[in-house]
Design a protein around this nucleic acid. Structure first.
Ligand SMILES: [Zn+2]
Ligand SMILES: [Zn+2]
Ligand SMILES: [Zn+2]
Ligand SMILES: [Zn+2]
Lengths: 135, 135
DNA sequence: GTGTTAATTGTTATAATATAACATTGTGTA
DNA sequence: TACACAATGTTATATTATAACAATTAACAC
């Protein structure tokens, strides 16, 4: 067990940012996070972006690429798999993480024609949520 | 033929931007497009972004969300379907559009548990292309 | 303890991406 | 002609993200 420099626990800033993202429980943007954690001592965008990078890397949060927003993971397996899927309502912007074994199994085993080796994927579905469909 | 305000042809700026994107034949960023079409008379970012919006809307190009880049469509059916999938090499950044009937059929018919009505999706796979795997 | 390494933080400045607002011009059709 | 709508031109600004560098902290080996 030599040079095992892999941290078990989150650092101070990482924990502050994660706590806030988990509290709001919906996709949130980096600068909005910044404004809301300034009372905790985080002053600069880079402090937020660095925490976000780490949290994404370890699977605690995900980036909704089409929205430039970040959301807490609801799916324990993401910390390992890096396989993410979301449904996004184009009307109310509600986002939910899809957890579907069949879907993830299918996509993890997908082979493209060019013989590429996939390590991860991100899938975003767009449409209307139930509430917005009725209106 | 009444009130048929749906244009058949691209406008001048839209055509300039599309021509350039098709010529480079790889994902390219908005400001890079701007620099390269200034000789054609396009001077401001907004002129590029407006053309890009339209071209994405009609399926002539796609946005690679994780890269903030735009690429010409290689798949005639995208003008209708809005169902896109890409493979992205994390080493050389090569991007190719996946055209796989089984995959698109599977995803188009996917139903999430919340009963959302999907109109489109975007899927991005990440990994190493054949060339970069060898190295 | 000391020394070593990597991770994290703090800070200022700047780069890169994208949109707001408003006036004007072009295009198809009644 | 007049109308509706799409597209353009222009300036300014908003939003998202990173570069560069110095300082501090945490984990481990010896
Ligand atoms: Zn997750
Ligand atoms: Zn909705
Ligand atoms: Zn396409
Ligand atoms: Zn490659």
């Amino acid at each position: 067990m030599k040079h095992m420099h892999k941290q078990e626990n989150l650092s101070k800033n990482q924990q502050i940012v994660l706590d806030y993202i988990e509290k709001v429980n919906e996709p949130i943007k980096a600068y909005s996070i910044l404004h809301n954690v300034q009372k905790k001592g985080i002053k600069a965008p880079l402090q937020v972006y660095r925490a976000l990078d780490k949290l994404v890397e370890i699977g605690k949060i995900h980036k909704i690429e089409s929205r430039n927003a970040f959301v807490a993971c609801k799916n324990s397996s993401c910390q390992l798999s890096k396989a993410t899927a979301f449904s996004i309502c184009e009307s109310c912007e509600e986002v939910s993480e899809i957890s579907d074994n069949k879907l993830s199994k299918y996509l993890k085993s997908f082979q493209d024609k060019a013989g590429m080796k996939f390590k991860k994927y991100n899938l975003e579905f767009f449409g209307l949520c139930k509430k917005c469909s009725i209106k």
